[in-house]
Structure formats: structure tokens, C-alpha cells
Design a binder for these strands. Structure first.
Lengths: 181, 181
DNA sequence: AATAAAAAAATGAACATTCATTCATTAATG
DNA sequence: CATTAATGAATGAATGTTCATTTTTTTATT
């Protein structure tokens, strides 16, 4: 799975043939099929594994009873830092969500909000209720938050931008400005 | 090129074999090679064509001498409307930029700002100078603008969200809130 | 206008390559 | 000895590209 992650993150699904994944993992090509029924299964399990790790790391130390703005900035920072720390995870997930694999999954995700998303959705809903956050549907508020975040991380992992510490906090605050009234 | 656009936008680069492109275009497979040296060339020319159309349409009626905020909202709206009107173009470009094709191109794009981008960069630079816009690098300001936009359009073209008129304007204003001081 | 010759374009079967997957065989483990 | 795992060559399907052949269009000649 690690070998697959690296290859796919760097070269995309089609730059990662099973033979190369096997080579990188120092096993024979056929061995992979002892543990994964197919390439699709391998990729889907890899995706699940990454999601699990991310949601775990984000919920860690979450200041559940802090003011709205603080909770928002915390979440934003955590997600941002996670991806900056694990650029390969980001690249892989990006590939995944833009492929047929991810799209059906995404549909479910949007309707029945899963864990990890819940934290943010709660912030939005409470914010709207208390007249702190603009009265938008959750999807729009999420786009105002994650849109810039993903956009930037992408450029960063590709080496186009260098994100420094003070800038990150200012970014988070700018996104808060976008959603607050 | 039209057949390629449709297939690639709907099923990705790898769901669009030359044989199918040819079939959709009602020519034989070999015929494509009279006009395009290879699949790569076809794809790159298609990309250039789309970029040309978009930059043209965006610059049309641009209120070059209006106040900053107005110019920003105009640009934002134009880009948004273009993609909502041409979902296939959006899907294609999204594929393109997330593939090896687009990444090298992107590098150039970020350094030497090309046409179309210039309009927005001018707004940013003037805004920073006049203390209307937050003092961020252009890349960050761009992410605060295009990040949410692309994010939303993606969900819209995939049929997850329905973007209505009044919402669009509010979105644009929210993004302005993100970059303004 | 009519015809012939030449050039250009279209065709699609054949080719070469890539790649996921299988499986008979060998090695490792309990 | 039995069971499980690993191996990697072989398989077959998919796909980009080529090219000899056919069809269409253009040009030249009568």
C-alpha cells in the first residue's frame, strides 16, 4: 500500500502499473494478488486507510467547547497542516476524487455527512443559527473553506508556492472572513 | 476535437480511446492522425482552444476603469457563468490540470502570468497598493478567489449542487470579503 | 465541358506495446 | 508433512499508431 501510495501520488493511477508497485514493494507482481483481489480493491483500501488517519488526526485535541471562530480556525489549521506534512496523501486523494473511484463516493458524502465532516458542519449550522456565519447552504460554506485550502496545498505540493507559518494563519482568517457575516 | 472533448470530459483521458473518439466523430480511427500527430497533440490543441475561448469571453465588456470591487465581482461572475454554461469545458480542464499534461504548463503559468490572468493580477496588485486588499502574494489571493469557485463548479457539474442566481452573487461577494481588508 | 492525371484525404485491418491478472511451480512456515 | 505464501513467466485484453489500399478532391489537358 505504501508503494502504491507513492507511485500513484507521484505519477497518477496510470503511471503506477502493478509491476512497478510490486517492484517498489520488493515483491513479485503476483504476490500483490494474495492480499488484494484487484488493483481497484488495493486503491480503495488505500483510500479508506488514508481517510481514517486524517479524520483521527483532525479530531485529536479538538476544542469542542471553544467559540465558533476558534473551532473553525483550529480545524482549518489542522487540515492544512496535515496535508502539508503528508503531501503524498494529498496528491493521492486528489487523484482519487477526480477519478471514477471517488465520484460515487462523493455523492454519498455530500448527502449523508460522514465523520470528520460533521465537526465542520456543526460549526456552520451553529454559526448560521447565531447570525455569525452567512446564511448559505453547507456546500457553499464548505467550498469557501476547502476551496482555497485545497487550491493552495496543490500548488504547494507541486512546488509552486512556499507556504510559511504566519501566512497559514492569515489564510485561515481570510477564509473566516469569507464565511462570517 | 469536439468528440474528444465530450468523451474526455465525461469519462477522463483513459475512458476516451482513439477508436471511440473516431467513432463519435464519425471518421475512421486512422483519420485522426491526418490532423493530429498523436493523442497528446490532440489533447494539447484542444486545451489551447478552450483557453483561447475562455480568455476571449472574459475580456469581453470588461469594465477596465470601474472601481476595484466592481471589477473583481465582474471577473468572478464571468468565469463562474462561463463554466456553468460549459460544464464539459470545465470537466476537461479539470482533468487536464490534474494530469501530467497540465502540470508543466502550470509552472509557466504561475511565473509568467499569461493573458486572462493579468486582469485579476492587476486587481490584486492595485488593491494591495491602495490598502483595499490584504497584503498576500498573488498566488494566495488567487486561491481565495478561484478555490471556492472551482470547488463549487465541480460539485455543480457533477450534479451535487444546484447553483441559483442570487446565490452566485453572494458567493462572489463572500470571496471579496475574503481578500478585502 | 469532359476527361485524365495527380494529389490529398479517408479507411480500417494489422502491429506493437502496455498492463492487469492468472497459475503452475517453488519456497517458507507451522 | 501440510498449509500457506511467493514467484514470475504466460495470457489475453485494451489501445495508440502505422500503412497499404481505396475514395475523394483538385489540377491539368484536350
Amino acid at each position: 500500500m505504501e508503494a502504491a501510495l507513492e507511485l500513484i501520488a507521484e505519477k497518477g493511477f496510470h503511471g503506477a502499473p502493478m509491476a512497478e508497485i510490486a517492484e517498489k514493494a520488493k515483491v513479485a507482481a503476483g504476490t500483490i494478488y494474495t492480499y488484494f483481489e484487484s488493483k481497484d480493491v488495493l486503491i480503495n483500501e488505500l483510500h479508506q486507510e488514508l481517510e481514517k488517519r486524517i479524520t483521527f488526526e483532525i479530531q485529536e485535541n479538538f476544542p469542542a467547547f471553544a467559540p465558533l471562530r476558534e473551532r473553525f480556525l483550529y480545524l482549518f489549521g489542522k487540515v492544512l497542516q496535515y496535508f502539508l506534512k503528508h503531501p503524498l496523501h494529498f496528491r493521492f486523494l486528489e487523484q482519487y476524487y477526480n477519478s471514477p473511484y471517488g465520484i460515487s463516493l462523493r455523492r454519498e458524502r455530500i448527502l449523508g455527512k460522514s465523520e470528520g465532516q460533521t465537526l465542520l458542519m456543526d460549526i456552520f449550522e451553529q454559526g448560521v443559527e447565531e447570525n455569525i456565519v452567512k446564511k448559505f447552504p453547507n456546500g457553499i460554506l464548505a467550498s469557501l473553506t476547502f476551496g482555497p485550502l485545497f487550491f493552495l496545498v496543490r500548488d504547494h505540493t507541486l512546488g509552486f508556492i512556499n507556504l510559511e507559518e504566519p501566512l497559514l494563519e492569515q489564510m485561515a482568517e481570510a477564509c473566516w472572513d469569507a464565511i462570517k457575516i
